[in-house]
Each structure stands twice: as structure tokens, then as C-alpha cells.
Amino acid sequence: MALLVTRRRGGDVIPTREFEDVYDRLGQLMNAVLGGLAEGGDGGVWVPMADVSETEDSYIVEVDVPGARKDQLDVQLSERELIVTGRIEEQERERRHRKTRRTGQFELRTVLPGDVDAERVEAHLSDGVLTVTIPKARAAKPRHIEVSA
């Protein structure tokens, strides 16, 4: 059983972040199970593999979309939720012996753990990996105020 990582701010546990992680993981699990069943014959939506990491100043989401072109991808950011959708077309072959690569409509949704700067988001596709860099919002920093007499 996987354990959740407890996030702390100044020694305090942030329970909403824990629930968001559980919700995100549950959604991925449900999509993997139900998406795999739906894909059987009706071309259901599937969830691509992805990594979400964090640097000091941004969140980085890397999504595996082998065979996709940039015009087949749509990247949206709604508050803190990143949504990557698209469609990978199946190539027609005269005779197929094995098929394990996913094709058709896909969707990835993930909630980022902190506030973001939506105006500076960048997305880059290279070698079948879509890399979305989402800068963190600048935190309100305390400001020293001079007292006058």
C-alpha cells in the first residue's frame, strides 16, 4: 500500500492538499480501469502516462504521447487543474500481428499542489513527450514599512 506524503507549511499539516492527492490518484486509477474497459470496442478515452514534478519556481508535467503531433494536442489550465487532451490516429496496416500501443482519444487531468502563474505556462513536444512547465505564483512577501513621526 502506498503512503501519502504529508505536506507541511511551517510545521502545520495541510489536509486539503492530502485530499487533492487522494482525489487525483483515485481519478487516475478509475480512468486506468474504466478507460481500459471502454477501449475494448467503442474507442473510449484513455489516460496517458505522466510524471508531475516540482522545482523551486515551477511545476513540470511530462506526458507520454508517442506518435502525437502538436496539432493533435490541446493543453488547458483551469485554476490549478491541468488538462491535456488529444487524439492519436491509428495507422492503417494491411496485416497486423500485434497491437499494444494505444490510439484514439486521450485525456489527462491533474491538480497541481500550489497556486500557479497561468500567464507564463509553456508546453513543448519532443520525442513523444509533452513537457508542460507551469511557473508557481509569486507568493506575497512581507514588506517592511517605515514608521514616520
Rank of each mutant, 00 (worst) to 15 (best):
A2Y: 04
L4V: 08
V5G: 13
V5N: 13
T6E: 02
R7W: 00
R8P: 01
G10C: 07
V13K: 11
I14E: 11
P15S: 06
T16Y: 09
F19H: 12
E20W: 00
D21R: 13
D21L: 15
Y23I: 15
Y23L: 12
Y23T: 15
R25S: 14
R25K: 15
L26G: 07
L29C: 09
M30E: 14
M30I: 10
A32K: 15
L34N: 10
G35D: 06
G35R: 03
G36H: 10
L37D: 06
E39D: 14
G43W: 01
W46H: 05
V47E: 13
P48I: 07
P48A: 11
M49E: 15
A50Q: 11
A50G: 06
D51L: 10
D51T: 10
V52C: 07
E54P: 07
S58I: 10
Y59M: 02
I60N: 04
E62F: 04
P66C: 02
R69Y: 00
D71S: 09
Q72A: 12
L73Y: 05
D74K: 14
V75L: 06
V75C: 06
V75Y: 01
L77A: 09
L77T: 06
S78P: 06
L82M: 11
L82F: 05
V84W: 04
G86N: 04
R87T: 15
R87L: 09
E89M: 07
E90M: 08
Q91T: 08
E92K: 09
E94V: 10
E94C: 00
R95C: 08
R96N: 11
R98V: 13
K99T: 15
K99F: 00
K99M: 13
R101L: 11
R101M: 13
E119Q: 12
E119L: 12
R120F: 05
V121E: 05
A123R: 11
H124S: 11
D127S: 14
G128S: 07
L130G: 01
L130C: 04
T131Y: 05
T131E: 09
V132C: 02
T133G: 02
I134A: 03
P135Q: 04
K136M: 03
A137P: 03
R138W: 01
K141N: 13
K141I: 11
P142G: 08
P142H: 02
R143E: 14
V147H: 07
S148N: 12
